[in-house]
Amino acid sequence: MTSSFEPDRRRVLLGAAGAALGAALPLSGARAQELATTAEAQPDAAESDRIAAEFLGGVAPLAEGLAMELPATADNPAAVPLRVHVTEALTEDLWCEELIILAELNPLPLACRYRFSAATGAADVALRLRLIRSMEVRALARLSDGRVLEARAAVEAGVGGCGM
C-alpha cells in the first residue's frame, strides 16, 4: 500500500467555495425561511378595507359574478395558487376594466392589480401568492358598466415564514 499519496497536512477549505456561490445565488426558495425579515402581518383588515374602499369609489360591490378558487389549506404558504374569474360572458361592449387582489393581513395587502381592455374578451387570471399567515383573500373587479364584483375566501396557512 502506498501511503505517500496522503497529503501531509490536509486542510479543508470549507465555506470558501460556498460563500462565493452564495453571493451569486438568488436568495429564494426554502432557504429564505431562515433569513430574518422585517415583514409584519397587518393587525387587522383596516388597510385592506381602505384600499378596497378606494377601488370601490362609493359603489356597493356585488357578491355574485366573480369566482375565486383558493385552497382551504396552503401546503406551502410561499406559493398559494389562486384563480379569479368573472363568470359572465364578456363582450366588446362589456368588459372588466380592473381587478385587484387583496391579501388582507400581508404587510402590503394589495397583492396585485390587473387591467384589461375591451379587446380582452375575458377576465380570468391565476397567480401564486405568498402569505404571511392565515387570512382572507379578497378580489374586486370593476366592469365597464360600473358594477363592482367581489369574492372572498379564507386560507389556512401553516406556521413558518413565507419567504417575504
Binding site: R83, A119, T120, L127, L129
Partner: peptide
C-alpha cells in the same frame, strides 16, 4: 392591442406564474 397588464407586489411568489385568458 393591450390584453392585460399586471402590477404585482411583494405578496407575489418567487418565479412568478401568470395565467390569463383572452378572446
Amino acid at each position: 392591442t393591450l390584453l392585460m397588464e399586471w402590477e404585482p407586489g411583494a405578496s407575489i411568489s418567487q418565479n412568478p406564474y401568470v395565467e390569463f385568458a383572452f378572446a
